[in-house]
Design a protein around this nucleic acid. Structure first.
Lengths: 192, 192
DNA sequence: AAATACATGTAACGGGTTACATGATTTT
DNA sequence: AAAATCATGTAACCCGTTACATGTATTT
């Protein structure tokens, strides 16, 4: 059977870096890997409990506060995680709502489609700016560069940069194509 | 509440093109839009029933076989579909297993990571070849070009082409970065 | 005659999201 | 004192996948 429950492995991965509470894990996901991975509390806490039962994680001693529930990964947990790492990543069946909508674009007014593509482009421009800033701070940090993990943290970031760039170009190209091949009501506006 | 059940709208979209049975819809998804949308029987048939109850679709007269259950979209169904089309596409929370695994690449042997990226690259090369072929047959078909839907069918295809290309480049770049910044055991092999 | 493709559906499962509930701690 | 943040957890829901069951029509 195919491996599901990727939350399990995401949590094990984060705990490989440092002991964390559920809250910490969520914060880490939101801050550091949010451009390619997301988690939510409703899933983290139950999985944390399950991982503890499987002895892949255990309560950590160094709790900052009595209320905090800090976990650390066990040797078994590390083994489990690395084993998963080496499996080929599952090819997920694609479901792009944008592409689906776009392919039926001739059912709505051309201005709508163009506006939609404009929003997509803007979002990608914002993302790109953010990625570029991150990349800059990475590349000028000599300590980070010496970390053996450096190229592995750089890779998803570079992917974000390259795909953002290509998405922007695609938006522009697509607007042009739409105007050229399906002029409809836009042409008239040009004379106003 | 956010709109879920996108299968509903995918089905309405396909039925806008022509009356279909559940089987036809599945076939259409697999053959025509599989690079950005997927459906499966276990979801299609129940949703088909639900759509009928909502009067968005109705049984079609022209059944080829007694066994086939062909549906056509109603005016209400068309309205429902177009209304959805005009809503901004939901931004889906990203979950790239490849990126997650890659960001922990320093936990496994470098050869493993390089092999993994090689497979990803190969898959993208295969996809690109397929997309390019499709694009060629599109661009040389004058009848298709005159269809007002032409740029809307072209757009997802172009997106596939551009992202495949960029993925290939990213794989190559990433392998280089890994070799440069995390040489480890590969260097030795170079002398063998 | 056997194998493949056509065709429709149900049941169980599970993964992930959202909303809800609750309270402590820190900052303004 | 109030607001914001920290922090943990549960319950309900629903979407989508997988596996199962069943039978017909067509091709080899």
């Amino acid at each position: 059977m195919a491996i599901k429950n990727k939350t399990k492995y995401a949590i094990l991965g984060v705990l490989c870096l440092k002991p964390c509470s559920g809250y910490d894990i969520k914060k880490f996901c939101d801050k550091t890997i949010s451009h390619y991975w997301s988690e939510n509390f409703g899933h983290i806490y139950p999985v944390l409990k399950q991982l503890q039962e499987e002895h892949f994680i255990q309560p950590s001693e160094d709790k900052a506060s009595a209320k905090r529930n800090v976990f650390q990964i066990t040797d078994e947990g590390k083994r489990e995680f690395v084993e998963w790492l080496m499996l080929p990543p599952e090819i997920q069946s694609p479901r792009s709502e944008l592409m689906l909508k776009l392919s039926f674009g001739n059912y709505i007014a051309i201005e709508h489609v163009i506006a939609m593509l404009g929003e997509v482009k803007d979002r990608n421009i914002r993302n790109l700016a953010y990625y570029r800033e991150l990349e800059g701070s990475y590349l000028t940090n000599d300590a980070a560069k010496k970390d053996p993990a450096f190229p592995y943290w750089l890779a998803p970031l570079r992917h974000g940069i390259l795909t953002s760039e290509v998405n922007i170009r695609w938006c522009e190209e697509t607007v042009q194509n739409i105007k050229q091949y399906a002029p409809s009501n836009l042409e008239e506006d040009a004379y106003v």
